[in-house]
Design a binder for these strands. Structure first.
Lengths: 109, 109
DNA sequence: AACACTATATCCAATTAATAGATATATGAT
DNA sequence: ATCATATATCTATTAATTGGATATAGTGTT
């Protein structure tokens, strides 16, 4: 697994984070971001990014299995984070913590 | 303080993170990132981004006060994170945590 | 003096990503 | 029919990243 697949753009990172604890469908991801004061990403950014994340193996999708009376409107497609997706979020956090703590080797002292 | 100033590009985020705990000079920031497996950012990306961060008030800079014999080579310029810079990193983390935990209001039950 | 190394800094061109707006399709409710 | 929900794509513009080059300056070595 070359770790270059795990590199995330800012939008991909928030989208992935929105899936970290719960599976969600598209517009639900958007609502989660908007409710938390994130920079507004439109569905024109959302769907292509979900597709890219899926292609990289960081998320999986499945069509909603709810009965039609459960909600109005069209079918929902649910997105779920994969183990590789979780790892991608972790790697980013480890990078931020690592660069902060890093110290140069002072030869001698 | 409009929070739009606090929006960070990916490179700006790692650079800021590298300054979170220690003041550092340019090439030291690069070394910190490289040592932690971050995507390689060159000094052609570094200096313009440091300037942008300074303009936004997220970092401050000062010329090194070391005696000339402390290290070989040219003068170092040290960068230091500001309170607003710390806040920008926090906001990002809160966003990631917030979107993960968010739940839609289920009207009724 | 010439050279190498460290260090900051800018410029250009090419690629990639983000953003706004429009359009299309499908489903269910009023 | 119309409205609201929902997924999906397209185009054009703007912003960000990247690689490569160039410039300047201080310090140590040959």
């Amino acid at each position: 697994m070359s770790e270059s697949n795990l590199r995330l753009t800012p939008n991909q990172e928030v989208i992935l984070a929105a899936l970290r604890l719960h599976r969600r469908y598209g517009l639900e991801i958007l609502a989660a971001i908007e409710s938390n004061g994130g920079k507004q990403i439109g569905f024109n950014s959302l769907y292509p990014n979900l597709k890219k994340l899926e292609k990289k193996g960081l998320v999986q999708s499945e069509w909603g299995d709810e009965p039609p009376e459960a909600h109005s409107g069209a079918r929902r497609k649910y997105y779920r984070i994969t183990a590789a997706g979780i790892r991608a979020l972790e790697i980013k956090q480890e990078l931020l913590a690592g660069v902060a703590a890093w110290r140069p080797e002072t030869e001698g002292a």
